[in-house]
């Protein structure tokens, strides 16, 4: 949790950087800096507050000034968070679902894009239009039908029951991202490979796939955030505690009659967002780039 402690001070960092003015007359720049800093503080303050609260004692939290730093820092909340819930198991389940879905999304997305963009066929436009539907249509439409279908084939309460819709709804964006990259692979490469006698399978394995690594990373990162945090599919298709992912596990902290141990809950929330936050901060540049490109191409 050393990271979270330093995190809470960072909203002020841009302000500090703005202060030594290089050009004393640049008033507009200064004002912009202050406005941006204020906006960023408002944007990030709830999260900082979340982390600070997870380190407060209950008494300190109950009678608190929202801006005060905790009088005593305690890790009891974290101990209680782990004792109350099943955080370890929840994280493991989230991990399995996320990795499973990402593998499916990346590989099927690559295959689909290869068929549509590189191989090409007569009805490829129609198939592309078909995939477009999945981007527009809200995921809730699949809940009742899938619930009924899963019940019929005994898939309720399995990892697959969450992975199938998560991967299915993410597939169109993945295919479009790979397709728009494959557009830029020059045809001469493929022609040369064909002349050397390589068929479509070998070309896929030895040329297209190795070239796709960057796009694979982009697709994986964009989707990992949404899948790690998925609530609706897990909430609908998971029925037992054994398979609960992190978002569901967090709900266990609402005790009987809605009474909530807030500081412990906030500690659990901090634990649940830490893996993704770490990945995000380490891969910061690539991640922001992926999110922006993933969203626009979608």
């Amino acid at each position: 949790m050393t990271l979270t402690a330093s995190r809470t001070t960072s909203p002020t960092a841009p302000e500090r950087r703005q202060k030594p003015p290089r050009k004393p007359l640049n008033l507009q720049g200064k004002i912009t800096g202050i406005i941006v800093t204020l906006i960023v503080i408002v944007q990030v303050y709830p999260l900082a507050w979340l982390f600070i609260t997870s380190l407060r004692t209950e008494k300190d939290f109950a009678g608190g000034n929202p801006f005060a730093l905790p009088t005593t820092v305690t890790f009891d909340n974290y101990a209680r968070a782990f004792a109350t819930g099943n955080l370890g198991l929840n994280i493991l389940n989230s991990f399995i679902v996320t990795v499973g879905s990402i593998v499916v999304i990346v590989f099927l997305g690559m295959m689909g894009a290869y068929a549509l963009q590189v191989l090409g066929f007569r009805f490829s436009k129609l198939v592309r239009a078909l995939f477009l539907i999945g981007i527009i249509v809200p995921v809730q439409v699949a809940l009742v039908p899938l619930f009924v279908d899963y019940a019929a084939v005994n898939l309720l309460d399995t990892y697959q029951s969450i992975i199938i819709p998560l991967a299915g709804f993410a597939l169109p964006t993945s295919i479009y991202l790979f397709s728009s990259f494959y557009e830029y692979i020059p045809g001469e490469i493929y022609e040369a490979a064909s002349l050397d006698g390589a068929g479509p399978y070998r070309i896929f394995a030895q040329i297209t796939l190795p070239l796709s690594v960057n796009t694979m990373v982009t697709v994986a990162m964009v989707n990992s955030i949404f899948i790690w945090n998925d609530f609706i599919f897990a909430n609908t298709f998971v029925l037992t505690d054994d398979l609960k992912t992190i978002p569901l596990g967090l709900q266990n902290y609402i005790g009987a009659m809605g009474k909530i141990d807030w500081t412990a809950t906030f500690a659990a929330v901090c634990v649940s967002i830490t893996p993704l936050l770490l990945v995000f901060l380490v891969l910061n540049k690539a991640m922001t780039y992926s999110l922006a490109s993933g969203a626009t191409k979608g």
Binding site: V44, L47, I225, F231, P247, L248, L277, F280, T288
Partner: peptide
């Protein structure tokens, strides 16, 4: 600023 501003997108809806 970019990193901090996008930070809430990483948090799950339950949180």
């Amino acid at each position: 600023v970019k990193t901090l501003y996008i930070l809430p997108a990483v948090i799950s809806t339950v949180a």
